[in-house]
Simulated scan of single mutants.
Amino acid sequence: MRRRYLEFMSMGLLLAPIFPLGAQNSPLKLVQTIPMPNVQGRLDHFGVDVKSKRVFVAALGDNQNTVEVLDLTSVKRVATIPGQSKPQGIFYSAEFNKLFVANGTDGTCKIFRADDFKLIDNLPAGTDADHVGYDPATKYLYVGVGDAKSGALWVLDTRTNKHVGDIKTDARPGGIKIEQSGGPRIFVTLAGSTKLGVVDRKKRTQVTTWPVPGTGASVALALDESHHRLFAGVRNPPSLIVLDTESGKQITQLEGVSGIDDLWYDAGRRRIYASGGRGFDTGFVYVYQQKDSDHYELESKVATAPGAGTSLWAPEFGRLYVAAPATEKQPAAVLVFEPQK
């Protein structure tokens, strides 16, 4: 009888949900799970519609190639936008009610109406169109294109859907972070490079590069303008690098999450969220606390799900959304975390 009981308990553990409910006293707590049944393959970046409380998820699996639309009020998927070609970067324009999707395989920026998701335009952007960044002052969308040998920021006017220029970079730019406090700079990662790129968007040129010594290529960035700090996420070795945006000098280096894909700065709590798990059996969000501009502490490692690399920090909602791809045991889902302190 005891053997049968243990077998039953073991089976129950195998069938139990893999998504954690958040440890006691954790800085992040899982408060919702939004399932995406039948979505297969890797998940990439998010877009957000704050007014209508929707998030958009790039599903770039070889047999998937969709953008999934999730309603945060009803906590469910409400639409699927097919016809993508390795969707990666996503931007939603509330002002013009458009959804912009950078597609890597065909190198396009596809533009959809955000009410019925009808295709408006399909513009050639460049090789492996990936990360996007938006400048609300000019209404320009910047799309990173290229490879490890050469790249550019492809610039689109979101008002007119017109391509207005290109800014050449040493390699494909990613992790695009744009100064919002009056400065002209855009900070980017450079594919395959141990350096970060600094672009002047007014002069439309890459003005310098900053070395990140002792690490591999950076893949994600976050920006704290008030303290003049740039955060870079590195996969090899897993590291979080803090740099001074005035000098480009490294301030400190901390343990990083394996398989990092996204990095966010929570200005209200002075925290950094680093989501990783791409290619790993377990995913995590590493939570760092900013003590002051020069001192940081790894506060917690919050378990998520296998392969859950990409995420979105939405300060308007005070929540972190993590994309969890499908496994043999669980359908694809978006995990919704809420800061607890």
Rank of each mutant, 00 (worst) to 15 (best):
N97A: 14
L298T: 03
D121P: 05
E255I: 14
S181A: 14
D294S: 13
G248Q: 07
G165R: 07
G133C: 10
V155T: 13
A274W: 01
A79Q: 10
G126S: 09
P315G: 07
I272S: 02
F187Q: 06
V69Y: 12
Q206Y: 10
Q289K: 15
K202F: 08
P173N: 04
P213Y: 01
I120D: 12
L320F: 01
V69K: 00
V199F: 04
A23F: 12
T209P: 12
Y296F: 15
L243I: 09
T73K: 09
V145Y: 01
F231D: 10
P331Y: 03
I81K: 09
R42D: 13
L72T: 02
I176D: 02
E246P: 05
L312E: 02
L263C: 07
T105C: 01
V322G: 04
P325N: 08
R172I: 07
M1K: 14
T189K: 06
L190D: 00
D261Y: 11
D266M: 01
T304M: 00
R271F: 07
S52D: 14
V39P: 00
A267P: 12
E246V: 09
I241E: 15
G277N: 00
L320C: 02
Q88S: 04
G248V: 04
A217V: 01
A323Q: 01
Q340E: 12
V39F: 04
F46Q: 07
P331Q: 10
Y140R: 15
E179N: 12
P331D: 10
Q206H: 07
D71L: 11
T66K: 09
G276W: 00
Y286L: 00
I18Q: 06
P173A: 04
E179W: 13
D44L: 07
T127R: 01
A171K: 09
F231P: 08
Q290P: 09
H163N: 11
F112E: 02
T105Y: 11
T169H: 13
D135P: 09
L30W: 02
G133Q: 04
G165T: 04
G182A: 08
T80D: 05
E95P: 08
V287C: 06
F19W: 09
A323E: 07
P325F: 09
N236F: 07
V336D: 05
G151A: 04
L13F: 08
A79I: 14
G182Y: 06
G89H: 02
W154A: 03
D262M: 08
G307S: 08
A114G: 15
G214C: 05
G133L: 14
G107E: 03
D49W: 09
Y5T: 10
A114Q: 13
L196D: 03
V155Q: 03
R235E: 06
D62Y: 12
T208D: 12
E328A: 15
D294E: 15
N63G: 10
R269I: 06
K53P: 06
V67S: 05
R4A: 14
T158N: 13
G41R: 11
F117P: 11
F91I: 09
D128G: 05
G175A: 08
R185M: 11
G165S: 03
A217N: 02
V334N: 01
R235D: 00
P17N: 01
F56A: 12
A129G: 00
E255L: 05
Q84H: 03
F280Q: 03
G41V: 13
V242T: 13
